[in-house]
Amino acid sequence: MERRRAAFQSGLAVFAAAVAAWWLPQVLELFSIINATVYTAMAVLALSLALVWGFGGILCFGQAAFFGLGGYAYAVGALNVGDTTWAIPIALLVPTLAAAALGYVMFYGRISDVYMGVITLTVTLILFNFINSTAGEEWRIGAAPLGGFNGIPATPPLNVPGDPGTPLTPEQIFVVALACLAGCYVLCKLILRSHFGRVVVAIRENELRASLLGYDVRLYKLGIFTIGGAMAGLAGMLFANCVFVSPTMFSLAYSGQIIIWVMIGGVGTLFGPVVGAMLLQALTAWAGTLPDINPNLILGLVLVVAVLAIPRGLQPTLAGLLRRREAP
């Protein structure tokens, strides 16, 4: 039953992504297509934290660090290699290694939850400060200047594999992004169905019991954290393709937003955070157009009210309401 439901949900997600990939480019203008790609990249980012926090039980305040690293690794790789296809594995490898290193320090140091949040936050801030200070000619990796506060405006888009002369159109990049989102969703479902995923959830439920049963808690936590880091890097790569990389990718505001998305969508769900990311992005965009109202004010109030009113998040709350209606 459980297995069939997971397969059904995965199929539905792939189908929805395929429909969106076929239909949206026909009806949307170029600007909206690029926006939709940004939303999709953010949804991948939300999914990465949904996995790490919702199922691994690790509240990472620094998911933006891996997001930024992915973006920067892609941009630097693309500018150096030329063929951007080869920049993709670089963009995945760098955040994966960073997540593994950070996770090793935290989990093998047996640092408790609260301290973990602070450490991830701090690492993100270090990166933010560091990248911000890299203005000037001496800060360059190969052919790519890091550009300090301005980032790398000349981030090249993806090209047809093996042919650096033909970059993908924004519509094609949108399709790639959707494929990544659907792929990540299915991957998460597969992970959670596997033995590894079940142990990870067991650790979230009761760490002491899991370790008494003989599982190396540290290793499993490190595993899920690293996967989450890689996924956030992928999101950064997609984001770099439709905007460009800049230090704001590492900023506290981004780290905060990701947590808000997952929180609103529902901790411990996968679909909720995706919807949460899209909803909150739309809300932020809408708030930005209002005269005299600062978007931060609205975003902040939404978060406070959400924590107080729907602490379980949208998806579980809505599902609970539906269930109550079904069963009299």
Binding site: D113, G117, N294, N296, L297, G300, L303, V304
Partner: peptide, 25 residues
């Protein structure tokens, strides 16, 4: 939110964003 450490963190984060927004306005 006493005793719910993570929720307190999130709520105060929201508060922080809202205060920044309000003062900017």
């Amino acid at each position: 939110l006493y005793g719910r450490m993570v929720d307190t963190m999130l709520a105060t984060w929201g508060l922080s964003l809202a205060l920044i927004g309000a003062v900017t306005m």
